[in-house]
Amino acid sequence: MIDALGAPESVLLVGGSSEIGTAIVHHLRRRGRLRRVSLAGRPSARLDAAADELRAAGVRNVDVLYLDVSRTDSHAEFTQRAFAAGDLDVVVMAAGVLPDQAAALADPAVAVASAQVNYVGPMSVLLHVSTRLRAQGHGVLVVLSSVAAERPRWANFVYGSAKAGLDAFATGLGDQLIGRGIRVLVVRPGFVPTRMTAGLPPAPMSSSPDDVGAAVAAALSGPTATVWVPGRLRWVMSALRHLPRPVFRRLPR
């Protein structure tokens, strides 16, 4: 159960080696109630290292679950495994890739594969998981969206369009689950320097995975449904989204 002050006992992280995702889990761990963590993803040294780090930090039960987010036909069976040990208080959807846009434009298969990981797969997992959460009557879904979802830019619109889809889906799911005891927290970070964004020039108002973790942990008990990191991005984006297209198009990166 998540206690009155927002500390969970169990967490499932989809995208188990995601830097932002693991930062969120570590922030939740610091609330002192976390006993069970499942990290789901494709097997990798990073995934195992993330699990070891959580064990070393004192989480009693940490396990690694095999999941290929893009293979939607495996999700029913995955969800069954994920809930086998009991209730899940928090499910973090952090799977995602940042496709090279030039490559995606040259090869539609690259674009489609990225949308499969960034949008279609998460949608499928979220639906499977939310059915289980509804049955247990409590829980929080944390969905990592992006400022790119608010208004995708031409320099990065393949990624942005998938995040926009996921963001709209998660927001709608949150509203649909009102009154069911389930909250959906849509997280919209700005630029976060991670492996995924390595090589990109840093953007203004960037934040660290740790900042995102702290913001999510803080929002877990309150009534908030959308988390911007940093918080002032909310006001910046609400201005940017109303810029005329010719102006928005010409904005520097």
């Binding site: 159960m1 998540i2 509804r134 009557g137 409590h138 009154g179 069911r180 005891g181 389930i182």
Partner: peptide
């Protein structure tokens, strides 16, 4: 009937039948 319940402190609402 499904209802969202809390205690008097109005924290940590969960759904029950």
């Amino acid at each position: 009937m499904d209802e969202l319940l809390t205690g008097w402190g109005r924290t940590a609402a969960t759904r029950a039948s």
